[in-house]
Lab assay of single mutants.
Amino acid sequence: TLFEALYDYEARTEDDLSFHKGEKFQILNSSEGDWWEVRSLTTGETGYIPSPYLA
């Protein structure tokens, strides 16, 4: 399933992933509550992002 970022986000820890509004992601793991592990389709990087920032 693909999701798109609604807002920009700046990583706060080394496990987080910074991203920009409009960036698209593949969800790798959504079992961690509000923090999902994703792969950016723009950069190929993986990390955790806050799920409320996605649509």
Rank of each mutant, 00 (worst) to 15 (best):
residue 46 T to S: 05
residue 16 D to T: 14
residue 54 L to W: 08
residue 33 G to T: 11
residue 39 R to Y: 10
residue 31 S to T: 13
residue 8 D to G: 02
residue 1 T to A: 12
residue 48 Y to T: 05
residue 17 L to Y: 04
residue 21 K to Q: 07
residue 22 G to F: 08
residue 40 S to F: 03
residue 30 S to P: 06
residue 30 S to M: 14
residue 38 V to Y: 01
residue 22 G to T: 02
residue 38 V to A: 06
residue 49 I to E: 00
residue 25 F to T: 00
residue 26 Q to V: 14
residue 3 F to R: 06
residue 12 R to H: 10
residue 25 F to K: 00
residue 7 Y to Q: 15
residue 13 T to Q: 13
residue 5 A to D: 10
residue 30 S to W: 12
residue 3 F to G: 08
residue 37 E to T: 10
residue 25 F to D: 00
residue 48 Y to Q: 06
residue 35 W to V: 07
residue 40 S to R: 13
residue 21 K to N: 03
residue 44 G to Y: 04
residue 47 G to D: 00
residue 48 Y to D: 00
residue 18 S to I: 13
residue 20 H to M: 11
residue 6 L to F: 11
residue 5 A to P: 02
residue 13 T to K: 13
residue 41 L to W: 07
residue 25 F to Y: 13
residue 14 E to W: 08
residue 35 W to I: 09
residue 39 R to W: 05
residue 7 Y to H: 06
residue 1 T to Y: 11
residue 23 E to Y: 03
residue 8 D to M: 02
residue 44 G to T: 00
residue 33 G to C: 11
residue 10 E to S: 09
residue 17 L to G: 15
residue 52 P to A: 15
residue 39 R to M: 13
residue 40 S to H: 07
residue 46 T to I: 12
residue 18 S to W: 05
residue 54 L to T: 06
residue 16 D to A: 15
residue 46 T to Y: 06
residue 18 S to H: 05
residue 4 E to C: 13
residue 28 L to V: 07
residue 53 Y to H: 10
residue 49 I to Y: 01
residue 53 Y to M: 11
residue 6 L to K: 09
residue 23 E to A: 03
residue 26 Q to H: 08
residue 8 D to P: 03
residue 39 R to N: 04
residue 11 A to Y: 02
residue 36 W to Q: 00
residue 28 L to W: 01
residue 37 E to K: 09
residue 14 E to Q: 11
residue 43 T to I: 01
residue 5 A to N: 00
residue 7 Y to C: 11
residue 8 D to S: 07
residue 14 E to F: 07
residue 31 S to Q: 09
residue 2 L to A: 05
residue 1 T to G: 09
residue 6 L to R: 06
residue 18 S to P: 04
residue 38 V to P: 00
residue 50 P to I: 03
residue 46 T to A: 05
residue 36 W to S: 00
residue 31 S to A: 11
residue 7 Y to D: 08
residue 38 V to Q: 01
residue 26 Q to W: 14
residue 53 Y to P: 04
residue 22 G to S: 02
residue 44 G to K: 01
residue 35 W to Y: 11
residue 23 E to F: 03
residue 36 W to H: 01
residue 32 E to L: 14
residue 12 R to W: 15
residue 33 G to H: 11
residue 10 E to L: 10
residue 17 L to D: 00
residue 13 T to M: 10
residue 3 F to W: 15
residue 20 H to K: 14
residue 16 D to S: 14
residue 10 E to I: 13
residue 51 S to E: 02
residue 26 Q to R: 04
residue 51 S to A: 14
residue 16 D to G: 15
residue 41 L to N: 01
residue 12 R to C: 10
residue 10 E to D: 14
residue 24 K to P: 03
residue 1 T to V: 12
residue 37 E to M: 11
residue 42 T to Q: 10
residue 51 S to T: 06
residue 45 E to L: 14
residue 14 E to P: 13
residue 11 A to N: 03
residue 53 Y to G: 06
residue 29 N to Q: 07
residue 15 D to T: 11
residue 37 E to C: 08
residue 48 Y to K: 14
residue 52 P to G: 15
residue 54 L to Q: 07
residue 54 L to G: 06
residue 9 Y to F: 06
residue 28 L to G: 01
residue 45 E to Y: 07
residue 28 L to F: 02
residue 23 E to R: 00
residue 14 E to L: 08
residue 22 G to Y: 11
residue 18 S to L: 05
residue 3 F to T: 04
residue 5 A to S: 05
residue 36 W to C: 04
residue 47 G to R: 03
residue 49 I to A: 13
residue 32 E to Q: 14
residue 40 S to G: 04
residue 4 E to R: 01
residue 54 L to V: 10
residue 37 E to Y: 15
residue 27 I to G: 00
residue 51 S to F: 10
residue 9 Y to Q: 02
residue 31 S to N: 11
residue 20 H to E: 07
residue 8 D to W: 03
residue 28 L to I: 10
residue 21 K to G: 02
residue 32 E to R: 14
residue 37 E to Q: 10
residue 33 G to R: 12
residue 27 I to F: 09
residue 13 T to D: 08
residue 20 H to C: 10
residue 37 E to W: 13
residue 13 T to C: 15
residue 15 D to L: 13
residue 5 A to I: 03
residue 25 F to P: 13
residue 54 L to Y: 08
residue 19 F to C: 05
residue 45 E to P: 00
residue 5 A to Q: 01
residue 13 T to P: 03
residue 54 L to P: 06
residue 19 F to Q: 01
residue 24 K to C: 09
residue 36 W to L: 05
residue 31 S to V: 09
residue 43 T to H: 02
residue 44 G to W: 03
residue 40 S to L: 06
residue 26 Q to Y: 12
residue 15 D to N: 15
residue 46 T to R: 09
residue 53 Y to I: 08
residue 23 E to T: 05
residue 35 W to M: 10
residue 12 R to E: 08
residue 15 D to R: 15
residue 39 R to S: 05
residue 40 S to V: 07
residue 15 D to H: 15
residue 22 G to H: 03
residue 18 S to V: 06
residue 45 E to D: 07
residue 12 R to Q: 14
residue 20 H to D: 03
residue 46 T to H: 09
residue 50 P to F: 15
residue 25 F to G: 00
residue 17 L to W: 05
residue 23 E to V: 02
residue 18 S to A: 06
residue 21 K to H: 04
residue 19 F to E: 07
residue 55 A to P: 08
residue 47 G to L: 06
residue 15 D to E: 11
residue 28 L to K: 10
residue 35 W to C: 09
residue 53 Y to S: 10
residue 15 D to A: 12
residue 37 E to V: 09
residue 41 L to D: 09
residue 31 S to G: 10
residue 42 T to C: 07
residue 45 E to W: 08
residue 4 E to A: 05
residue 47 G to M: 06
residue 17 L to K: 02
residue 35 W to N: 07
residue 54 L to I: 08
residue 2 L to H: 07
residue 28 L to Q: 02
residue 45 E to F: 09
residue 47 G to E: 05
residue 20 H to F: 12
residue 24 K to N: 03
residue 43 T to L: 00
residue 33 G to K: 08
residue 25 F to M: 03
residue 4 E to P: 01
residue 2 L to T: 10
residue 8 D to L: 04
residue 44 G to P: 00
residue 38 V to R: 00
residue 30 S to Y: 10
residue 12 R to P: 11
residue 55 A to N: 10
residue 51 S to V: 10
residue 50 P to V: 03
residue 22 G to E: 01
residue 40 S to N: 14
residue 2 L to D: 04
residue 9 Y to A: 01
residue 27 I to H: 00
residue 22 G to I: 01
residue 1 T to L: 14
residue 49 I to R: 02
residue 55 A to H: 13
residue 38 V to K: 00
residue 21 K to W: 03
residue 24 K to M: 14
residue 46 T to P: 00
residue 14 E to R: 08
